[in-house]
Simulated scan of single mutants.
Amino acid sequence: MTNGCPPLFILCAPRSFTSLLAAMLGQHPEAYGVPELNLFVEDTLQEMVGAMTDVYAIQLHGLLRTVAELYAGEQTIDAIDMAHRWIVKRIDMTTGEIYKELCRRVAPLRIVDKSPANSATLRRLERISQAFPDACYLHLIRHPFDMSKSLMNLQGGQIMATLTNSIDHSQGYEVLDPQILWYRLNRTVCDFLATVSDRQQMKLRGEDLLNDPKQYLQLICQWLGWSWHDSAYEAMLHPDDSVYARFGPFGAQLGNDPNFLKSPIFKQRHVSTGSLLGALPWRPDNQGFFPHVIELANSFGYE
C-alpha cells in the first residue's frame, strides 16, 4: 500500500511567519496545507493524546480539525466528535502510521506541516525521518530580536516562554528570555539537518519571503519539483482560502496561531529586522543577546 507523497515539514521556532507560509504553500494545486498536527511529539497516538492535557490540550486541535475535514468533509461540532472516535479507534497505532494514513487520504497532494513542536527535540525530528526517509524540510528562520519581541507581545506568549523553560539563570536571578527558545530550536534544527541530504532541505529567512514572495515561492516550488505558473502563484497569495484559515468549532478552535486565524490575508509589505546589538527590551537588566545567539544569527545572515 502506498503511503502517498512524502510531506514537507516546515521546521521553525514559533512566531517565525510559519502559519502564513504554510498556508500559502498549502494553496498550491499540488499541496495540502494542514494545521499543526503535532503527531511526532510521541511514538504512539496513545502517548501523544496522553501528553496533550491541561494547558497542552490545544495541541490536539489541529489533528481533530484535519480528521474532521478529511473524513467528514466539514469542521463542525459533530465532525469533531467523529474525529475523537477516529482517534480512539487508532489509539494503539504509532504516530508515524497515523501520519501515513493522512498522506494516503490527501494523495496525490503533498502535506505541508508547520508544527513548531516538531523542532523542540532531536528525537521528534528523528521520528519524522524514520517514518518518512524522503521527506523534505524547509528551515524557516526569523531574526531573533523580532521573533522574541513578537512572542513576548503575544497574548499567552510569556506563558509559552515559561513552559518551554526559556529562563536565564546566568546572572544569579531568573529572567524570562525568549532568545533561549530561539537558539534552542534553531540549533536543534541545524543539528538535525546536518544528517539530512542536501536535496531534501532548504533554508529560508521569513523576512526575505515577505519582501519578495514571487522570487522565494518560485524557488521553493522549483526545489520541491512543483509546477510554477501564474495561477499557482495567485493561489498561494490567498492563504485565507484554506479551509483551516479560520477558527474551528467548539472543542477544536485553534490548530494554528490565533493571530493568523483572526486575519489570514496576505498583504505584501516591507519587513525590516531588529538589531543583534544593544539591550533587549524584554529584559529588566539591560543585557543583550548571548554570544552564541549572535553567532548563530550571523550564520543565517542577520546582523
Results as ranks from 00 to 15, higher is better:
72 A>T: 14
34 V>M: 04
58 I>V: 14
68 A>P: 04
47 E>Y: 04
61 H>M: 00
49 V>C: 04
68 A>W: 03
62 G>Y: 08
37 L>A: 14
74 E>R: 14
46 Q>S: 15
74 E>D: 09
64 L>N: 03
64 L>Y: 11
44 T>N: 06
60 L>H: 04
33 G>P: 06
69 E>N: 05
30 E>W: 03
49 V>G: 00
68 A>V: 10
75 Q>T: 09
34 V>Q: 03
33 G>A: 01
67 V>W: 07
29 P>V: 01
42 E>F: 06
49 V>M: 13
65 R>Q: 02
69 E>M: 09
42 E>C: 13
66 T>W: 02
40 F>C: 06
62 G>F: 05
57 A>W: 02
44 T>K: 08
50 G>V: 04
39 L>Y: 06
53 T>F: 11
47 E>F: 06
43 D>W: 06
50 G>Y: 05
56 Y>Q: 14
63 L>W: 06
32 Y>T: 04
53 T>W: 12
41 V>H: 14
51 A>R: 14
41 V>Q: 14
66 T>I: 03
47 E>Q: 15
71 Y>V: 07
45 L>T: 07
37 L>W: 08
45 L>P: 08
51 A>T: 04
31 A>E: 01
36 E>I: 01
37 L>T: 02
33 G>T: 01
60 L>T: 03
57 A>D: 12
55 V>I: 09
48 M>A: 10
74 E>S: 12
67 V>A: 08
73 G>Q: 03
62 G>H: 03
71 Y>P: 06
62 G>C: 01
46 Q>D: 15
48 M>P: 05
69 E>H: 04
70 L>H: 12
34 V>N: 01
58 I>S: 13
61 H>V: 02
37 L>K: 07
39 L>S: 11
66 T>E: 04
73 G>C: 02
41 V>C: 15
41 V>F: 12
31 A>Q: 00
58 I>T: 11
43 D>V: 08
50 G>P: 02
52 M>C: 10
56 Y>F: 14
60 L>V: 00
40 F>W: 05
40 F>A: 01
41 V>L: 09
57 A>V: 09
38 N>R: 05
61 H>Y: 06
66 T>A: 01
54 D>E: 15
48 M>W: 15
54 D>A: 15
76 T>K: 13
45 L>N: 04
36 E>A: 05
38 N>D: 13
44 T>G: 07
73 G>L: 04
73 G>K: 08
75 Q>K: 11
57 A>C: 11
72 A>R: 15
29 P>Q: 08
45 L>E: 08
52 M>K: 04
30 E>D: 13
45 L>S: 00
32 Y>M: 09
31 A>P: 00
61 H>N: 10
49 V>A: 02
56 Y>S: 07
